[in-house]
Amino acid sequence: MADFLNLVRNENMKIYYRVRTWVMSAILLVLPLAMSIIGRFVDDSPNMWSYVMLESGLMTMLLSIFAVVMAADSVAGEFSNGTIKLLLIRPWSRNKILLSKYLALLCYIVLNLAVFFALTLLLNFVLFGGGDSGSSIPSGWSPFGYVTAWYGLNLIEMAVVATMAFMISSVFRSGGLAIGLSIFALLGSGIISSLLSLIDKPWIDYVLFMHFGLERYLNAGELFRGHSLGFSLGVLAGYYVLFLALSWYVFNRRDVAA
């Protein structure tokens, strides 16, 4: 087991010894800082929770993109640099090597999200104080409870999108394709789901795009096509398992030829 952790350490090394990673994280730190500080001076009636939600919305979007970039590069990058050959001729099964990559990716996402969650709460509490949440938090929720649930659902979505990118990266060995398709799924899901809604067929309830934007379930009474949160989570879980199965199956069988 300790040996396997070495593989994860290796993958972490490949993530955190790159300048790129730190540039992304710096953006994630600087942007909310700037938004809150500017808000502190120009906003007439500032409210901690509205800034928390505003920044969180923007930053989770950015972090999703960064996570997709990481996931896409994780396997495809090793292929395009040729380093995959030296990685796979070690006394480790391909299953475990892929697992170490996947775990390192999940750690990156969770770590960034956790740091950002703490940062935005602390920052805005310091600048604006606690106080009334106004209209930024739906009624019936404590502000902290709502934000926590909101982050939880976003983490799930991010994991699904990153896993999709990881799968495309592993199956097609193309980082560009993985980034492109995943970001398209991320940003285009709203448009696609409203287009699909025009087709009144039962199968569209099982299309992946219909189930992004989980946080809308937090606003009670805004049920989408009559789905419950549980149903959406179930569908996402189905796709998640499918993505993982495809990644592992193809990676295990692949002839490393180039």
Partner: peptide, 13 residues
């Protein structure tokens, strides 16, 4: 132990 074709290493390390 092997080198298969070019010795490709992680360039950023």
């Amino acid at each position: 132990g092997a080198i298969v074709e070019n010795p490709e290493m992680y360039k950023f390390l």
